[in-house]
């Protein structure tokens, strides 16, 4: 079983210290973020069980939370995850076109991963970037004012990243 590193365990201690004594459950969501970010972008049952024992919770308490929030992936995802917004304001500015373009370029459907494991396409609901639509989340940042050309450039950038 994978274990958190000493460095990470220290971060957990710092996180828990943000809350009053006995309220360490509050550190659950930050901890799940940390786990997902450092373990291939998704949360396995083993990871969640480990988080549960770190915070002295029952595993079900962790599953309940992890399945509630849309940012937590409970299945493996590609190395680069494109999360394209499709809600009202983005739709008004052509998000349908962007999604169709990515599907065509990568040859995958929504919620699918390319066979090489490089890309996953997800559609998401409003990310709070309506003035910069259409947009998507890629990694921890937003890519905004998307066009077909911009999307192509991002895909190339990812591929280069992978070779570099």
């Amino acid at each position: 079983m994978i274990k958190f590193s000493d460095e990470q365990l220290k971060q957990v201690q710092e996180l828990v210290a943000r809350y009053p004594e006995g309220k360490q459950k509050s550190a659950l969501i930050p901890l799940l973020h940390m786990a997902q970010d450092t373990r291939g972008g998704w949360l396995s049952a083993e990871t969640m069980d480990e988080v549960a024992s770190l915070l002295q919770l029952e595993p079900i308490e962790v599953y309940e939370v992890a399945t509630f929030y849309s940012m937590f992936n409970l299945q493996p995802v590609g190395k680069h995850v494109f999360e394209v917004c499709q809600t009202g304001p983005c739709m008004l500015n052509g998000s349908d076109r962007i999604i169709a373009h990515i599907k065509k370029r990568l040859g995958i459907g929504v919620s699918e991963t390319t066979p090489d494991g490089l890309f996953t396409l997800k559609t998401v609901e409003c990310l709070g970037a309506c003035g910069y639509a259409p947009m998507m989340q890629y990694g921890i940042t937003y890519r905004e004012h998307l066009t077909e050309e911009k999307v192509d450039a991002i895909i190339e950038e990812c591929k280069r990243d992978n070779h570099g």
Binding site: A45, E58, I60, Y63, E64, T67, F68
Partner: peptide, 16 residues
């Protein structure tokens, strides 16, 4: 060991 998983109209009682 059981609880409510997922949300909205996908929510379900389960053990995961």
């Amino acid at each position: 060991v059981h609880g409510v998983l997922s949300r909205g109209d996908y929510a379900e009682i389960a053990t995961y």
